[in-house]
């Protein structure tokens, strides 16, 4: 069942373009994403493709110069600002990018207990620590005493005890060594297997592939493709969008061949398909209008030429 549905989400920011004039700059345009219960959706894309902004929009923590249109619905009901505020931390939890989000002056056990909404906080915290293989002494430690991996597991347990049905993890892997990454990812898998939905925001396709069910590929503020994880295989012929294929081929374990050019800037987006200027199969038609998202082979794609 879909628990979180994002439809046609667009976000723009008021920014100073000249010294005295503010202009609306589109950073996310008509974005569609669906999160299913028991499923991990990995969101991958280059920096600046709008991955983190999507998370912030879902939680309602965008800065106040942002303008939003489109709908986000949670559990079948549309999310309003008030509803976002009440769901934040209770039903929708964010695992932030940085372990600096832990309170440096508070024992981590207490921090986790603070997130427990119902029942015995201490028991809940102990149970989750055990599940995540954090030793019993850890609850009395302060954040500076934790290793990177332990700190990350603490953040994860905060999300778990909160009873959240949706977890959004923003770039949980950079800077960790492979063992810790593997462990953190396994925790996400376990969480999803218990019936929750996980959105894993990352630019690291490789680690996303190991646990995700579906992968949403972002480019220049929109989704270009949503594909089941099995499609990321071989030389990428099962993928639908030319950008996903290019991204896949550029991985060091594959061909390591880059396509030229770079992602367009929000204030300078092409009029038609956002990828057209770099696309090897672009035609004149591509420059006319941004293609709609359409169903294709058990996935979705935003390209008129995709087969």
């Amino acid at each position: 069942m879909s628990i979180l549905v994002v439809e046609n989400l667009s976000i723009s920011f008021n920014q100073y373009t000249e010294s005295l004039k503010q202009k609306n700059v589109n950073v996310i345009s008509s974005l569609n994403v669906t999160l299913e219960e028991g499923e991990i959706l990995a969101v991958v894309g280059a920096s600046g493709s709008g991955k983190s902004l999507l998370a912030h929009a879902i939680l309602g923590i965008l800065p106040n110069n942002a303008n939003i249109s489109g709908t986000i619905s949670y559990d079948g009901e549309i999310l309003t600002a008030a509803r976002q505020a009440s769901l934040r931390g209770t039903e929708i939890a964010l695992i932030p990018q940085s372990v600096n989000y832990l309170d440096p002056l508070m024992r981590v056990g207490n921090q986790v207990r603070n997130s427990v909404k119902v029942g015995d906080a201490v028991a809940a915290q102990r149970k989750v620590f055990e599940r995540l293989r954090l030793k019993s002494g850890v609850e009395n430690m302060y954040p500076f005493q934790l290793s990177g991996g332990m700190a990350r597991r603490t953040l994860l347990s905060t999300a778990i005890v909160s009873g959240a049905k949706v977890i959004i993890a923003d770039e949980p892997t950079p800077g960790l060594d492979p063992v810790v990454i593997k462990e953190a990812l396994e925790n996400f898998r376990e969480f999803a297997d218990n019936g929750c939905a996980v959105m894993l925001i990352t630019h690291d396709i490789e680690s996303a592939l190991t646990i995700a069910d579906k992968i949403a590929v972002f480019y220049a503020g929109t989704t270009v493709e949503i594909a089941p994880v099995e499609n990321f295989n071989g030389d990428g012929e099962a993928l639908r969008h030319p950008y996903s294929k290019a991204l896949w081929r550029a991985l060091p374990q594959n061909e390591f061949i880059p396509i030229p050019g770079s992602q367009p800037r929000p204030n300078n987006l092409p009029s038609g398909c956002l990828f057209a200027p770099r696309c090897p199969i672009a035609t004149l038609e591509c420059e006319l209008a941004q293609p709609e998202m359409r169903e294709l082979r058990n996935g979705r794609v935003r390209c008129i030429h995709a087969t």
Binding site: V44, A250, P252
Partner: peptide, 17 residues
């Protein structure tokens, strides 16, 4: 030192080339 860790695969390959 982790020069392309924060970058996407395409940019990473471009820079390394």
């Amino acid at each position: 030192d982790e020069m392309t860790t924060m970058l996407d695969a395409i940019t990473q390959a471009q820079i390394w080339y």
